[in-house]
Amino acid sequence: MLFDHGKIKVARKFSYSELVAATGNFSQDRKIGKGSFGDVYRGLLPVPDLREVAVKEMRQPTLKRNRKNYVHEIETLCQLRHKNLLRLIGWCDDGGRLVLVYELEPNGSVSDHLHDGGTSGRILTWPQRYNILLGIAAAIDYIHNGAYDSTKRYVLHRDIKPSNVMLGEGFEAKLGDFGLVRQVIRHGGGGTPRTTVIGSMDYMDPKYIELGTLSSASDIYSFGLVLLEVATGVRPSVPGTAAHRNTLIAAVTESHRRKAILEMVDEQLRGELNQWWWQMERVMVTGLACVEPARDERPSIKDVIDLLSKHEQSPASSRYLKDTSMRPKDRLPFILTRNVALANARATSLP
């Protein structure tokens, strides 16, 4: 037994035999996903539950690190409640096995739709992508600022990427896979003690690799890459261990330098470009701000949400990162102030 089951009031403990029955003995034709730490199967719980679930069986359950991550994921998720977080239904640790049971979202992951055509072969429209990004941002804001007493501690996800974002019935975002989650006590330095570097290299903060320390800016960096990937349809890639040479960041940065950032928009969205170019541009430019090399020059998640939530077109939205006289942390309040002024001007000019 890894922890006191009586302390977990929200999620349910399953027996391994129940999950064997639910997944057809973890049948290969029930497999719906494969991650770094385990395989995910579609399951059907019997009456009285009678609902489909996603069952993740951890690999190498005897490894101390895997068992520690498993306990952290359960204990953390049982304390979190947000519409944009994937809900943990239960767990099983019978016989040394490590299994997690989640709600099953009907539309797969964001990665499925960006790169594999999704479960229905439908392409995500730009409004769907934009709302998905807003949902992910809301989930990050919740774990960074709202999940606990935010003056004392916060939660780092540590593995934000499209394959870890599931899509609900209405294609709403559900951030999941909290296997690397870390609860952090706030202190003046803003970081955490040194820790083993682990996660998805293509989405990993280079400062984390360099220093072995995490901060909320590490999650912001990962989300910046998600913003770029959702807008461009291109997976990020890091050659070897050169985390500072992410190919997606380099490509978008180069296009932006030539004042041609819209050429990076996903080919599948070209038909929507005339209507939504300003949002597409805003998402990519905000993504570039999030992946600034220096952590203190990246925006907070609240700044990101403010930027993404603006509904008006603004000349500033296409120019605010082109003024190299202002660093990103100064440019973000600049664009927000300018957008508000423009909106107010439009409102006062209406009859």
Score class of each variant (00 low, 15 high):
205 D>K: 10
229 E>G: 11
215 S>H: 04
257 R>G: 01
222 S>T: 11
249 I>V: 13
266 D>A: 02
251 A>D: 05
198 I>Y: 06
233 G>V: 00
204 M>N: 11
246 N>C: 09
249 I>E: 00
225 L>R: 08
268 Q>P: 03
196 T>S: 14
236 P>N: 02
263 E>L: 05
253 T>G: 01
277 W>V: 02
269 L>E: 05
199 G>I: 10
242 A>T: 03
277 W>A: 05
231 A>Y: 04
279 Q>I: 02
216 S>I: 15
263 E>Y: 13
196 T>Y: 07
206 P>D: 01
221 Y>G: 02
208 Y>M: 06
249 I>S: 00
206 P>E: 00
244 H>G: 00
270 R>S: 08
225 L>D: 09
208 Y>G: 09
274 N>C: 09
212 G>S: 03
261 I>G: 11
220 I>D: 04
202 D>E: 15
275 Q>L: 08
204 M>Y: 06
231 A>R: 07
220 I>E: 05
209 I>W: 03
256 H>S: 06
206 P>A: 01
199 G>Q: 10
251 A>N: 04
219 D>I: 10
205 D>G: 12
224 G>M: 12
246 N>K: 01
209 I>H: 15
205 D>C: 08
207 K>S: 06
213 T>F: 12
272 E>G: 05
259 K>N: 07
218 S>W: 13
234 V>W: 10
267 E>A: 12
194 R>L: 11
235 R>Y: 03
207 K>W: 01
265 V>I: 05
228 L>N: 01
240 G>I: 10
271 G>N: 05
278 W>R: 02
216 S>M: 09
193 P>L: 13
264 M>T: 09
224 G>L: 05
227 L>N: 12
189 G>T: 12
276 W>D: 09
225 L>Y: 13
218 S>K: 06
250 A>M: 00
271 G>H: 12
247 T>F: 04
195 T>R: 15
245 R>E: 15
193 P>M: 12
217 A>S: 15
234 V>M: 13
228 L>G: 02
194 R>W: 14
189 G>C: 11
224 G>E: 07
192 T>W: 04
280 M>S: 08
217 A>T: 07
197 V>L: 05
198 I>V: 13
212 G>C: 10
245 R>D: 13
271 G>M: 00
196 T>Q: 14
269 L>I: 01
190 G>I: 12
266 D>L: 01
273 L>P: 11
248 L>W: 00
255 S>T: 08
208 Y>D: 02
196 T>E: 11
277 W>M: 01
247 T>I: 05
194 R>D: 08
273 L>A: 05
200 S>R: 06
254 E>K: 08
190 G>K: 08
223 F>Q: 05
217 A>H: 13
195 T>Y: 04
277 W>I: 04
197 V>N: 09
227 L>F: 14
193 P>F: 07
190 G>Y: 04
229 E>Y: 07
257 R>H: 06
271 G>A: 02
210 E>S: 02
213 T>Y: 15
